[in-house]
């Protein structure tokens, strides 16, 4: 077993200390304004959820390089357990300033839940009843999916519990679909 959870916590705090920051309220309000705009543009909660996930994906595929370059996690993760821990304790801390808890592993260790007790995205937010189907923090699912895909893990993520919808915690379920193989571009096919 490589690095322990405690040392990831420390790595996360160091990364958070180094990275440049924006004002938390500005961040929260900007995100809120963006979600509002999406609702106006798409007029359908399902489409908004999808759009948020896809925006998150596009963030994730870029953010991974900043993470790898600056987080100070020196050795590659050896298994999904370590990956989950690094996401929860280092990545969440580095980019959002909060940590998540890893829990509810399934039997064969291919799925886990991230519990977010302190989600900065939902500060000041109340969900009106007509938008009860909105997955307000669905962007986070996309970010995780995009970032892990760039390190060859195909995962699916979904919000299963949401404080805005009356649950006591935000829970994101992450499920490993496959470990991707290196595939070379078509230019390299024997012709």
């Amino acid at each position: 077993m490589a690095t322990s959870s405690k040392s990831h916590q420390r790595t996360g705090e160091q990364a958070w200390g180094k990275i440049s920051k924006v004002n938390a309220e500005l961040f929260t309000l900007t995100y809120g304004a963006m979600v509002m705009q999406l609702i106006q543009d798409f007029e359908d909660v399902g489409a908004v959820n999808k759009q948020l996930e896809s925006m998150g994906y596009n963030i994730g595929v870029r953010l991974i390089d900043e993470f790898l370059a600056k987080a100070g996690v020196s050795t590659p993760c050896t298994d999904l357990k370590e990956t989950a821990d690094v996401v929860a304790k280092v990545a969440f801390k580095m980019f959002l300033g909060v940590t998540a808890d890893v829990s509810s592993w399934n039997g064969d260790g291919t799925a886990f839940s991230l519990l977010l007790y302190d989600n900065p995205l939902i500060e000041f937010v109340e969900l009106p009843p007509q938008y009860s189907g909105l997955l307000y923090s669905n962007l986070l699912c996309g970010v995780i999916r995009g970032a892990l895909e760039m390190v060859q893990m195909k995962v699916s993520c979904r919000c299963v519990r949401d404080v805005l919808r009356g649950d006591d915690v935000n829970e994101i379920r992450v499920e490993l679909k496959e470990m991707m193989e290196d595939v070379m571009d078509e230019d390299y096919k024997e012709g």
Partner: peptide, 23 residues
Amino acid sequence: RQLYSGIFVEYVAKHPQFNPVDG
């Protein structure tokens, strides 16, 4: 390493025109 973390990440990965997926 410096080229990656100090220059690539700042000037390429964060640039909207860069697409990390399509190469």
